[in-house]
Simulated assay, not measured.
Amino acid sequence: MNLTSITKILVLITVIGLSACVTTSTGPFEGKKDLAKAEATHVQIGYRFFEKEDFQNAKKSLITALEINPRSAGAHLGLARVYERELEFDLAESHFKKAIRYNPESEYHFQYGAYLYNRGEYKGAYKQFNEVLENTVYVRRAQTFELQGFVAQQLEKEDVALNMFHRAIAVNPMLASSYVALARIYFEREDFVTGAIQYKGFVDLVRAKVTRQNASTVWLGLQLARATNDQDSFASLELQMKNQFADSPEYQEYIAWK
């Protein structure tokens, strides 16, 4: 994720709410089990086509799944993502809502929240992510905290954003964007020592090769290093800015600032 502005996020769709295992026992419900298996298969095939950006065949497979089961949340989610990519936003919105209606599990709220986030519909995204965060065992909980932090910033809820970023890191200390966001908030509040501590968390991930510096993060680090009189960090970041980001707008800001 871009560390200086809200950008679109990519979310992998997965088969959710469909049985991954279908028994082979005979009986009065065997036909229903076969239909459920066929539905799941068509959804999986549709997702594979989606991943290959073969949207036409993805739609065919997902629509076939809906012909088997019109309440297939997985199929509706898949179609929502396809229509999102095809810029058919009204259709995407309709299928996201149907997916949630037929299966209100956290993943569906997360996917819809991510869609609204990408569309700049932050109030709606905020609501969806709050729904997700009520589930304390949800697998993307840390990422949801982080995204909710960025949404809160867009809604000018800075204290909420601060809390969300801290909680994101508490759940997953490998979230580089949350460290940078915290460092930036504390810098703007002129709490330079706390900002520098958060920035160090980001730098540790850079050194571990979990993430990389960019012009924006180096520029933030330079300002924090100057504010905290960290001459060693300043010299290192200054050299990095000159060698790697001399063509960036941040470098011009740095030259004017210096």
Rank of each mutant, 00 (worst) to 15 (best):
M1E: 07
S5N: 13
I6D: 06
I9Y: 06
L10I: 09
I16E: 12
C21H: 10
E30K: 09
K32T: 13
V43F: 10
V43Q: 09
I45M: 07
G46V: 02
F55N: 01
N57P: 03
L66F: 08
L66D: 06
N69E: 13
P70W: 13
R71K: 15
G78R: 03
L79D: 09
E84L: 14
S94E: 11
S94P: 02
S94R: 14
H95V: 02
F96A: 08
N103W: 02
E107M: 12
H109K: 08
Q111K: 10
G113P: 03
Y117C: 03
G124R: 04
Y126M: 10
L133Q: 00
T136D: 14
Y138R: 03
A142I: 00
T144V: 12
T144A: 13
T144R: 05
E146S: 10
F150H: 02
L155S: 04
N163R: 05
A168N: 01
L175W: 01
A181M: 02
A181N: 04
I185C: 01
A196N: 12
Q198M: 09
Y199L: 05
Y199Q: 03
K200E: 15
F202S: 04
V203M: 07
T217C: 05
L220E: 00
G221A: 05
Q231P: 01
F234W: 13
M241R: 01
K242W: 04
S248N: 01
E250P: 01
K258H: 07
